[in-house]
Write a protein that binds this DNA or RNA. Sequence first.
DNA 1: AATTTTATTATACAGTTGTTCAATAAAATT
DNA 2: AATTTTATTGAACAACTGTATAATAAAATT
Lengths: 189, 189
Amino acid sequence: MKTDLRVLKTKDALHESLLSLLKERALESISITEICKAAKINRGTFYQHYGKVEDLFEEYFKEIMKDLAESYQAPYKYVERIETTKLNPATIRIFHHIEKFKKFYFIVFSKNVPLAYYYLLFDEIHVLMKEDFIAHQKIDKDVAVDMLSAYQSNAILGMVIEWYRQDFNKSAAEMNEQLVAILNLRLGG
Amino acid sequence: MKTDLRVLKTKDALHESLLSLLKERALESISITEICKAAKINRGTFYQHYGKVEDLFEEYFKEIMKDLAESYQAPYKYVERIETTKLNPATIRIFHHIEKFKKFYFIVFSKNVPLAYYYLLFDEIHVLMKEDFIAHQKIDKDVAVDMLSAYQSNAILGMVIEWYRQDFNKSAAEMNEQLVAILNLRLGG
DNA sequence: AATTTTATTATACAGTTGTTCAATAAAATT
DNA sequence: AATTTTATTGAACAACTGTATAATAAAATT
């Protein structure tokens, strides 16, 4: 036995309600009362599953994260050639994933949203990076793997922030080119 | 004429009230009503200056940012030797600054806090990086300066996140060593 | 020092939040 | 199909939010 059908029904209704409200207004302006009214779910039931609006959104977020992870199941599927540098296939799909869910990431990177979402994204990329470092023995004895992958994954996210601030008006392909160019610089000395 | 004395008095009282509450409880659990009661300021007055608790905190944040900026006025003051790499003095002071305001950054990096604070920190470092790139002509024609400095500054913040998650149980000096080691890797191919 | 300007206060109101409880209805188990 | 388990409901409560108003007090200007 897994999950009660009533719970599934409730959560589905709440998800759909939030998503339809998000099409019209910003996340921080949407109240719990409002979501429940639209979903025809008792407010007390909301509190049985979540603590705040953001927790409900986070559940939706995890669905999107699945897409990010799935992109890496068939790694070289979308990549034609990697000539300029040893860019791992995980990295090379991140910008495409963001581009695909542009609308969603406009919310994730907005100022008033809790840092928790950023961390969810960071952790997802962090893990992929780390796996790649270990798989390809790119490890230097003086550098802690966690530090290096934290450095690298957040660097990518730095580019995404910049991209977001320019209203995502670059293609994912252009972003990859920029990344390749940056990686080919010898940043240390 | 600059600012009304009454406004200064009000803001001082609110600042002090928030800080003393923060010593006992988490930011997200502190209500406006509570802050005002402790500060002996009318709640309506709070709304004349701020919209939410976080706005008040942000004002305090900007004070801390001044310290970060000031660290760079006398750049080599604290640096004994930079041998292993061309680490710019701005970069080398960031970890020390964070260490100095450890308590404060425990709030800034906590999950429930709005992304806005992260951006304030990011922008501060971003600007310092950018200035350094331009001053030292480290620019490659294929790389947009904004992208590069976004990449680099957020990479540093990635290390800070990792540091924070390890409860800041490394010294700022150790963090600098890690950074030097990472920069000396040739990340691109 | 008198006058003007403006920040702060006290009060009030409708809406949201977070929590609790007994009653009910729906699902799982036998 | 009958019974047990448990999610959902509806109602109520105190506290907080966000906003508006007239009265007051404090600061700035003349």
